[in-house]
Amino acid sequence: MLPTDAADLRARVDKALAAFLAAQRDRLTTIDPALAEVSAALEDFVLGGGKRLRPAFAYWGFRGAGGADSDQVVSAVAALELVQASALIHDDLMDRSDTRRGEPSVHRRFERLHTSAGWRGGAAAFGDSAAVLLGDLSLVWSDELLQTSGAGVAEITRARPIFDEMRTEVTVGQYLDVLTQATADTSVERAGKVARFKSAKYTVERPLLFGAALAGASDDLFAAYSAFGLPLGEAFQFRDDVLGVFGDPAQTGKPAGDDLREGKRTYLVAAAFAGLDEPGRAELDAGLGDQGLDDDGVRRLRDLIRASGALAATEERIGQLMADALAALDAAEIDDEARTVLRRLADAATRRTV
């Protein structure tokens, strides 16, 4: 059983999302039948996959703080999946990614819709516009799902500042990621900051604190969750960086070497620049961001990164961050069931292949 399935959580989150999105479908098609495609695209995207890690960290953060299980709390933490949908739709657009989880990305889906219908204007521009709007709509709906979850007013009031901070952090983290590519900043310090704000805090720390706030946790537990969640979130992102370069497309659902073609200046890449000689850095710099990079080019850049020692150093860093996170979890004053599931979630987040 996957750790996200403990307490039947993943199925319950999916049920809450499906009910919410079905109601929104009726709402949209009442406005105009043409919006059925918008509704279908978001239902397919949100319900078509995903590990549900963020709701799981939030739920077990809530349970660890002494919160009692309820469908209302499950609906509240399910709102995090709509934030995630928004981030992924926009991320795919900015990265010009063709696929997500083995299916066409949202901008490509609407580009194909335009082409197949024979509409006027540019199909690519239509797809891009649709993706911006659907990503925005997902973010709006995340607020609505939280507010209508059935959780108490006091609980939502406590959790809202963390929810808002999380959405701000992931948005500015995305901007820093784009900026780092544009400026070709290869410093480990910049790569670490991007990882922290684009993914680390948003994936683990903030969801834990969101759950803790719903439960009315103590300041000490908030500090313990941060000490656990931040290093674990960084390890999660560094694992994602490794998969973006060395992952198997059959498992990741994305073409091999996509992060290299997109010019991602990740911690892995920054460590490679630090470890290579001048000719090696020049070759890596020339290949990064080359949209026409073929399989041989991907293999060459992979070899450079591996030879620089960056892959080994990143794996070592993941291991150290994981050790720090688990030490903080062991010291946290939470019940044993929550501790056990959070430990399993930590392992799943850092040892995954997709």
Rank of each mutant, 00 (worst) to 15 (best):
G192R: 12
G135F: 00
A313V: 02
A151C: 14
F45E: 01
A332L: 13
L208S: 01
R343T: 13
E262Q: 03
L345K: 01
D219Y: 02
G309T: 02
E189D: 15
R120N: 11
G289F: 05
V153A: 15
Q181Y: 04
L268K: 02
I318T: 03
A23S: 14
F20V: 02
E144S: 14
L42C: 00
S75G: 13
V194P: 03
D98H: 13
K15H: 15
G275C: 09
L139P: 06
L88Q: 02
A250L: 12
K254L: 01
V204Q: 02
T340C: 07
W119I: 03
A36Q: 13
V242W: 10
A182E: 14
L9H: 02
T266K: 07
R108C: 07
G229N: 06
A65P: 00
A182Q: 15
M166V: 09
R265P: 08
G49W: 05
L214D: 02
Q251A: 13
G102Y: 02
D71I: 01
P255Q: 01
V132P: 00
E205R: 14
R10M: 03
Y175S: 09
R10A: 13
G121M: 09
L2C: 06
L53V: 10
A272Y: 05
R281L: 11
W141H: 06
P249A: 00
R112P: 03
